[in-house]
Design a protein around this nucleic acid. Structure first.
Length: 740
RNA sequence: GAGUCCAUAGCUCAGGGGUAGAGCAUUCGCUUCACACGCGAAGGGUCGAUGGUUCAAAUCCAUCUGGGCUCACCA
């Protein structure tokens, strides 16, 4: 009897020791597996790139869920002989990291970004990110993840930066990236543009004002924007206003005196809302902007970048929005132009990261055109490139119904604003000639050839003068670099062996909440840049909530640290609790009771092994034994389990495989097979019936340790070593039981 | 408002045209020499409502009710 088995199982000591051995063995790296003859060089590949966690803090239970799933499939594929790689990495997460850092900086020193030069500030944020990164990488080891550390990547490291610049340049040159004045979501608090999907809507109780506007009555919740409104818009089919024609003008008394207004007819107007008439403020409303663009109307800025009234608002200049609103209503009331004031509830847009109220603004920004036919793609648009491989099932999304949600999103997609006015991130690789080109002697003729704007991966030099180029100060939306993740991690734009061997990747395992942010963009980038899919299967996981179904949040103080759980009950138990019973796309209500149940299972497994080994002391493992008919039947049943588990694993039904294994090991193997074996084991040494059951027990135990390894890697590896009397880690590369 | 998913035991959820399943929880009995982190047993559901298809519906279809999620928008 092995001395370790005399003591209860100690997950903490075991897990740390085993992980170190795995890492030292090199088995996480497929090249080493091939070199050692464990994996055939020409074996089919299986590759996953880890969804890179943001370097904003530490790993939480959601990451534990992600790692449990991915490590299970990676270990399964490695054991069944695939050339398997799982690439680790982290995401610089631009706005998220910068705003987290700024908050801490403000709290600790009272300083803001304006107190530092750009480079210095960038470095400060980067240091903060890298410190978090270090913690996160060691947490990943704690989770037992068999990641190939030799291939670790960061979305902001040198190789990934080259990928970003290369991608940008290609898209720019093909006219897919453009700079333009467009209405954007401006966050006055964060002083940056944010993407549509970074907006959070919040309910607000406000007042619905009805004003007299010439012969019309208009409704609004935002009187302060109504200043320069000189277009009044109504539906062309609205019978109430049929006597007014498109283009009619009229004089009226308005906020700052007499003004002239023009009638515009547009069918986007909802006849049933308010009076069916509205005035438009194109500079500060997406809908209004689109109407103005459509009818080629003038646009005027009313509110500045920090949320105050512009000089052209006369006496209201410099007022904050809320104050201006009150005073303007006062003034209109005095003029007798206020018809009605009613309470009204609506949703206002706020910035997810800073909480600032979004003020739409027209800004010069960089965009990706999703509707432009691309010559090199047979005239397809980026939208179509995103849609194609999902529609054709070249990429399968699990659960399938998310495909419909994905299509619905794509159909409503607008051009993607990719510039951000923050320092942390990939600076846009566009260079402006500054100041104007003053050519050197004798080159005067050439100046017309001088490029004023250059898109390049390196800082360009002007051929004709001594002036330099200045880089665009904006940085890219973090999802731009994330979109390249499946191949930037494999060495692209270089045509590396890794890239050729492992792309397209086999599986992607993100949370469903980033299906659009990320999955869609990976499909877009990969289809556009490589003409290939980024992955074959997307297995979406849900959100981890607390046991009552509440989201984890700082304010609710219901956060649970994965490390605490691991310390208390072990990684294997945590991993099982994250897998059993959780189908793809399902949220998980985390309950420590469930983890406890699987820690008991670990103990059960430990004791099963102890029992079996203690009954094998007079048994020669090297000999071949003849099985009784009953035992042959037990072996067949176990083989059925192998078949079922294998099928479930292949179909990404980990939640069923793990549960079935648990059930078989405990309630069939332990409760029935072992219990019924007891009298037979009491027979004398060498008895044929005893030998048959000894052989059967050992074989079933070893088979099930292999089956359980993907889910509970530590304890199974430890027991495998004990059974085989070896201190080496071997189970991780042991062949998966044959299901033939 | 549009899209989408869900409604099954106290809780969390699998399953899915032919006598209702798991885990946890509950109750009772057991210190039986692998394991009390255990063993044995028990209770508990007309599978959201109504209608339809069918020999047969929890399962398929329709409608409804309630809830979740995503997107859009409220001028």
């Amino acid at each position: 009897m092995h001395e370790k088995l005399l003591k209860p199982y100690n997950p903490n000591e075991t897990e740390q020791r085993i992980y170190k051995k795995w890492e030292d063995s090199g088995y996480f790296n497929p090249d080493i597996c091939v070199a050692k003859g464990i994996t055939k060089a020409d074996a089919p590949h299986f590759s996953i790139v880890l969804p890179p966690p943001n370097v904003t803090g530490r790993l939480h239970l959601g990451h534990a869920l992600e790692h449990s799933l991915q490590d299970a499939v990676v270990r399964f594929e490695r054991m069944r002989g695939r050339r398997t790689v799982w690439i680790p990495g982290t995401d610089h997460a631009a706005i998220a990291t910068q705003s987290r850092f700024e908050k801490e900086l403000q709290k600790e020193t009272g300083k803001s970004r304006h107190d530092f030069p750009r480079d210095e500030f960038f470095n400060m944020i980067n240091e903060f990110g890298l410190k978090n990164q270090k913690d996160m990488l060691s947490q990943m080891r704690l989770l037992g993840s068999s990641l190939d550390w030799s291939r670790e990547a960061f979305t902001l490291d040198e190789k990934r930066s080259l990928a970003v610049k290369t991608a940008f340049k290609k898209m720019y040159e093909e006219g897919l990236i453009y700079r333009g004045h467009r209405i954007v979501n401006w966050d006055p608090k964060g002083q940056t543009t944010i993407a549509d999907d970074e907006i959070v809507y919040q309910e607000e109780k406000t007042t619905w004002y009805t004003f007299k506007y010439g012969p019309f009555e208009i409704g609004t919740t935002r009187p302060e924007t109504k200043f320069g409104d000189k277009y009044v818009v109504m539906h062309p089919d609205d019978p109430r206003y049929s006597k007014y024609k498109d283009g009619d003008t009229f004089e009226l008394e308005w906020v700052n005196g007499k003004t002239k207004a023009t009638v515009v007819k547009d069918s986007v107007i909802d006849i049933t809302t308010g009076t069916g008439v509205m005035t438009i403020t194109p500079w500060h409303s997406v809908v209004d902007f689109e109407i103005a663009e459509h009818h080629k109307l003038e646009k005027e800025q009313i509110i500045d970048a920090i949320g105050k009234m512009m000089p052209n608002t006369g006496e209201f200049a410099g007022l904050k929005i809320a104050d201006a609103r009150k005073q303007i209503v006062e003034k209109l009331r005095a003029k007798g132009l206020v018809v009605k004031e009613e309470p009204y509830t609506h949703n206002i847009a706020t910035a997810e990261r800073t909480g600032g109220i979004i003020e739409p603004q027209i800004k010069l920004q960089w965009f990706i055109n999703v509707n432009k036919p691309i010559p090199s793609k047979g005239g397809k648009t980026l939208k179509e490139l995103m849609r194609g491989p999902i529609a054709s099932r070249q990429i399968e999304i699990l659960p399938n119904h998310f495909e419909k949600i994905y299509f619905n999103w794509i159909d409503n997609l607008r051009d993607w604003c990719i510039s951000r006015q923050i320092v942390y991130g990939h600076q846009i690789p566009v260079w402006y000639h500054e100041p104007k080109c003053t050519p050197r002697q004798g080159r005067e003729e050439d100046v017309i050839k001088c490029e004023q704007v250059v898109v390049a991966t390196e800082k360009p030099k002007c051929e004709f003068c001594d002036a330099g180029y200045v880089q665009d100060p904006d940085t890219l939306d973090t999802w731009f670099s994330s979109g390249l993740w499946t191949f930037s991690t494999l060495g692209w734009p270089d045509q590396t062996t890794d890239f050729k061997t492992y792309h397209p990747t086999s599986l992607m395992n993100p949370g469903y909440e980033i299906l659009f942010f990320w999955v869609a963009r990976m499909v877009m980038m990969s289809e556009y840049l490589l003409g290939d899919i980024p992955f074959k299967t997307v297995y979406l996981h849900g959100i981890v909530r607390d046991s009552k179904g509440q989201k984890f949040s700082k304010s609710a103080k219901n956060g649970i640290e994965p490390e605490e759980v691991i310390k208390q009950l072990g990684t294997d138990a945590l991993r099982m609790s994250m897998i059993v019973g959780i189908g793809p796309g399902n949220d998980l209500n985390f309950d420590i009771q469930k983890v406890k149940a699987y820690s008991k299972f670990a103990n059960k497994l430990w004791n099963i092994t102890r029992f079996v080994l203690s009954n094998l002391e007079d048994f020669d493992v090297s000999k071949k034994y003849e099985l009784t008919a009953a035992d042959a039947l037990l072996m067949d049943e176990n083989h059925d389990v192998v078949k079922k588990i294998t099928t479930d694993m292949e179909g990404y039904k980990f939640y069923l495989a793990a549960e079935n294994l648990y059930h078989y090991v405990w309630h069939t193997f332990a409760d029935k097979i072992i219990e019924e074996a007891k009298p037979r084991l009491g027979q004398p040494t060498g008895n044929k019936d005893k030998e048959s059951i000894q052989f059967t027990l050992l074989t079933i135990l070893k088979t099930n340790l292999r089956l359980l390894h993907p889910f509970m890697p530590f304890i199974t590896e430890e027991l495998w070593g004990i059974i085989n009397g070896s201190d080496d880690v071997k189970l991780i590369v042991e062949p998966w039981p044959s299901s033939q």
